[in-house]
């Protein structure tokens, strides 16, 4: 068996060259032509840098209170002004990027892992397994996502960690359904049928053949879901069901400052701009990746 595997037939060099062209370069070629996608990528990279370097570049600490400096308008000392506790809003917005990106990435990774697992089980094994899992997805999708997240937080209690868990659960069916339909189509492909006929184990077929071929839609959906997850986390924070004071989560900052909107509008403007830019960045990047990786998904 080993001998057969290593005795490769001679390959036409031209075919070999075509095959070895990495997929990445093709995707990049198409991606870089898309200006909006590049802007999205730049915004996302900027935010990631901001989150990582907040402790070096933030002018002040997250909770450094100077009551004598409360509700100061934007100035050279405080570019985004100060809030009702005299805290520097720019610093809090910078640290807030950490929270939002962390929630976005971790929640979506959680949804991808659970959704992929359930989607594979449903699509590959079909019948009763598929019926049960698909009905669970249908039921979860029967709730508007923010409402289901609120229901889960109502059970677990309000905190950033519980908001993250809620957002992860809410997004599971999106990935589950995506993977299920991909597996359903892939399992009829000749190479999967061939792998089955030579007695390859199900786990090997699933993780070595089917999963790698389902990666493109997962990446696209994942990027777009980060935008949604960040927005949902901010919404939960705003409703007092996510991050709790004094955490500099952007949604929480908005709800804490809303009573000062008339006297100190900057306390509301900057956290909101931060949420909007972040969501915009991930949306543009996700759209660009979709066009580059899987143009059929466009409609």
């Amino acid at each position: 068996m080993l001998e057969t595997a290593t005795n490769k037939p001679p390959v036409d060099p031209q075919i070999e060259e075509e095959k070895s062209t990495p997929l990445f370069s093709e995707v990049w070629k198409s991606f870089r032509k898309n200006k909006l996608a590049l802007i999205g990528a730049l915004i996302v990279i900027f935010l990631i840098l901001l989150a990582f370097t907040a402790s070096f570049f933030a002018p002040e600490g997250i909770n450094e209170q100077k009551l004598s400096m409360r509700l100061q308008p934007p100035s050279a000392d405080h570019w985004f002004g100060t809030d009702d506790f005299g805290r520097d809003i720019l610093s809090r917005v910078m640290y807030g990027a950490r929270i939002s990106l962390r929630v976005g990435f971790i929640a979506v990774m959680g949804s991808i892992i659970i959704g992929t697992l359930l989607g594979i089980l449903a699509g590959y094994y079909g019948k009763v397994v598929d019926m049960i899992i698909s009905r669970i997805f249908d039921i979860l999708l029967a709730f508007p996502s923010i409402l289901l997240a609120i229901a889960i937080v109502a059970i677990l209690g309000p905190s950033l960690r519980n908001a993250l868990i809620a957002i992860a659960i809410v997004n599971v069916p999106n990935f589950g359904r995506l993977i299920r339909s991909k597996v359903l189509s892939l399992k009829e492909e000749e190479y999967v049928v061939a792998a089955k006929s030579i007695g390859m184990k199900d786990s090997r077929i699933l993780f070595h053949h089917i999963l790698p071929n389902s990666l493109a839609p997962i990446i696209v959906q994942g990027t777009l879901s980060i935008a949604t997850a960040i927005l949902e986390a901010a919404a939960l924070g705003f409703l007092g069901m996510g991050a709790q004071a004094p955490e500099p989560e952007w949604g929480r900052m908005l709800s804490d400052s809303r009573e000062y909107i008339q006297d100190a509008p900057w306390t509301v403007i900057f956290p909101g701009v931060a949420i909007m830019l972040t969501v915009l960045g991930f949306n543009l990047l996700g759209d660009g990746l979709r066009d580059a990786l899987d143009p059929r998904m466009k409609h």
Binding site: A227, L231, A234, A235, F238, G251, L254, R258, I261, V268, P271, G272, I275, M276, L277, V279, L280, N283
Partner: peptide, 9 residues
């Protein structure tokens, strides 16, 4: 990309 609660405020 607009958070509806921010637009409302």
């Amino acid at each position: 990309s607009m958070p509806v609660f921010w637009l409302g405020l």
